[in-house]
Amino acid sequence: MLYREALNKAYDETMAKDENIVTLGEDVGRYGGSYRVTEGLYEKYGEKRVIDTPIAELSIVGNAVGMAIGGLRPVAEIMTANFALLAFDQIINHMSKLRYMSNGKLTLPMVVRFPQGVSRQLAAQHSESYEQMLCAVPGLKVLAASDVNYAYHALKHAIMSDDPFIFIEHELLYNKKGEVDTSSVIDPFKAQIRKEGEDITIISYLKMVDDVMLAVERIEKELDCTCEVIDLCSLNPIDYETLQTSIEKSSRVVMVEEDHKTGGFGAQVVAWIAEELFYALDAPPFRIAGADVPIPYNRHLELLSIPTPDSIAAQIIEWGRKNDV
C-alpha cells in the first residue's frame, strides 16, 4: 500500500463509522485531492462531508474550528505547508487557544493536515517546513508521518481524538510503499526505533528518516560502529523517554532535520539533551539541518540547501572521527 493510500484508508474507515467527520480543502472533493489522499471520498460520502473550498486557507481552518465548536469532527487539508501560513492566525489564535481560554468548556476535535518540505524544484514558496513554529505553540498536538503504517494509525488516532492536531506529511512520501498492520493499534505519541544500534543515536523525523537509513550503512562501515535510528513520529509532545534510553546506551547523539538550522525543531531536542543528559554524553551533540536560505529552484542548489543521504553520511563520519567514535 502507498502512503497516500494509507491516509485514504484512515479517512475512509473513520468516516464510515462516524458521520460527524467531514473533510474540507481545495480540490479535495471532485478532483480527488492534489496528492490523491482524499480520492474516492467525495463519491462515497457526498459533497456535504467532502467539501471543496475556495482558495481561502484562513477560512478553511477558521471554518473547521467553528465546525468543531458546532459538534462536527473536521479534517482540513491545506495543499502545501506554505499556504498554511495564511491560516496561522486561525491555527495559533483560535485552534490552539479556545479550549484553554474557555477553561475547558470548548472542545476542538479537529485535524489540519498538509504536506511540507523540499520536493523537486518547486522553489522558495512551495518547499518550506513549519514544524518549528507549530511546535512552539502550546495547545496543538503535532504528528509527522514518515511511514505507511504510522501514517494510517496516527491519522486515525488524530481524527478520532477530541484534541486539535496538526498532521504533517511530506511531498516525497506520498508514493512510498509499505504495509499497514491492522492487527494492533500503535501509540502515535511514541517514537519508533527504525534500527537498533549501540554507538550513535541518530534522531530524525518525516522524510529525513529515510535519508538517514540510506546513510547508515556507510557510516557504520567507515566508523566501525553501529547506529540506532529513532523516528520521533510525534513532535509535540516529544517522547523523551525513548530518546533517553537510547542516548544513555550510545552516549552520542546526532539530530537530523530538513528544515533551516537556525531556530529549527532539532534545536529543542538538542537543548533538552544538553540539559538533561549532559553527563551521559561522550561527545557534543551534533545537528545536521538545512541551510539558512530560501529554497532555490536549481536542482543542484536545492540539494545543497538540505541534508541528503550523502551529506548526512559525510558529516556524521567527520564528526565521528573528531569525537573518537
Binding site: 524544484q121 522553489a123 522558495a124 514558496q125 512551495h126 536549481n298 536542482r299 542548489l301
Partner: peptide, 16 residues
C-alpha cells in the same frame, strides 16, 4: 532551465 543566465539566476524558476 535553472541557469545562472536566467532572469532570476536559476533560483526562481518558471513561477518566479
Amino acid at each position: 532551465f535553472a541557469k545562472a543566465d536566467g532572469v532570476s539566476g536559476g533560483k526562481g524558476g518558471s513561477m518566479h
